[in-house]
């Protein structure tokens, strides 16, 4: 099909350009402006140059929250991706149970983030929460408000509960798109379940899995609400991830300059990793 060049098409792009300018570009420009200045409010600013960037890049606090963030994102990816694939493989492909399973899987995704945090907070409380009481009843000393290990495991468990469904649904969509002929061919060749998974299902799911990893990476790397409601970043600073730390600096301490510099560094890291994933995804598609 031949395309007809028509410059008027640009007119249709203008609304989205205006929208993006207002909700992304102008705030981003403002953050850049803030990152090189100091303010005490009342729209009065003092030039500071690159001071905040140097301060953030060299601060122990930033390094620690960055490492915590990497550890958290790494952990949830290592758990959620294989678990999501396993659940998708176990789900029925035909029959009345398909709808039931899909609705059950979609439920956690429909719950607002702050509600998930509040729910898990109550659920895991060591004295009155069902989970907390149960773990303590088993003789394990568990208190997520005081012990870093308990706080971490609860935060990871909460994220796994909330977001594994996304991986399941994407993997399931990938599995459903495999034609029956592939399975028939594998059966004729006498392939076992592992061989079917390794040479048919996994390669066919590659594209959706890349999307799942990319989405889960970006989401978990920018996670704020759930751990904030669950632990508030504590005990101490043990679950203070990058975005929680950023909000503490920007709104808790009202240090807008350092917070702006940190936001830009944070943004660049997310942009870089997303670009790497996107490039790998495109490369995978070509192959």
């Amino acid at each position: 099909m031949n395309k007809t060049p028509n410059p008027k098409a640009w007119l249709f792009v203008i609304p989205v350009v205006v929208l993006v300018a207002f909700n992304a570009l102008i705030p981003l420009m403002t953050v850049v402006n803030y990152s090189v200045q100091e303010t005490f409010g009342d729209n009065v600013f003092f030039w500071e140059g690159m001071k905040w960037f140097e301060e953030v890049l060299r601060s122990e606090r930033f390094h620690e929250s960055f490492l915590r963030q990497i550890a958290f994102t790494g952990m949830i990816l290592v758990i959620e991706i294989p678990l999501g694939i396993a659940i998708a493989l176990a789900m029925p492909r035909k029959g009345p149970w398909v709808s039931v399973c899909l609705v059950l899987m979609a439920l956690p995704l429909l719950i607002p983030w702050n509600v998930v945090g509040a729910m898990w907070n109550i659920f895991a409380l060591p004295d009155i929460g069902l989970l907390g009481r149960m773990i303590n009843g088993l003789g394990i000393d568990y208190n997520f408000t005081q012990q870093p290990v308990s706080a971490w495991s609860t935060t990871v468990l909460m994220d796994v509960w909330h977001w594994t469904s996304l991986v399941v649904l994407l993997s399931y969509a990938g599995l459903s798109a495999i034609p029956d002929a592939y399975y028939q061919a594998a059966k004729i060749d006498g392939a076992n379940a592992w061989a079917v998974f390794r040479f048919i299902q996994l390669p066919k799911m590659k594209r959706v899995l890349t999307i799942a990893i990319l989405l889960r990476f970006m989401d978990s790397f920018m996670i704020y609400t759930e751990p904030f409601v669950l632990t508030g970043g504590g005990p101490g600073n043990t679950t203070t991830f990058l975005s929680i730390d950023l909000v503490k600096i920007a709104l808790g301490q009202f240090d807008l300059g350092p917070a702006a510099a940190m936001s830009l560094i944070y943004f660049l890291i997310v942009l870089l990793v997303s670009w790497i994933f996107y490039t790998l995804m495109m490369r995978g598609e070509e192959n």
């Binding site: 102008i26 420009m29 403002t30 850049v32 402006n33 803030y34 090189v36 200045q37 303010t39 729209n43 600013f45 030039w47």
Partner: peptide, 15 residues
């Protein structure tokens, strides 16, 4: 636009 806290160096960067 004073709330955007423009400076010459950042304006030059965006230009």
């Amino acid at each position: 636009l004073s709330w955007m806290a423009w400076t010459w160096p950042t304006a030059a960067f965006f230009v």
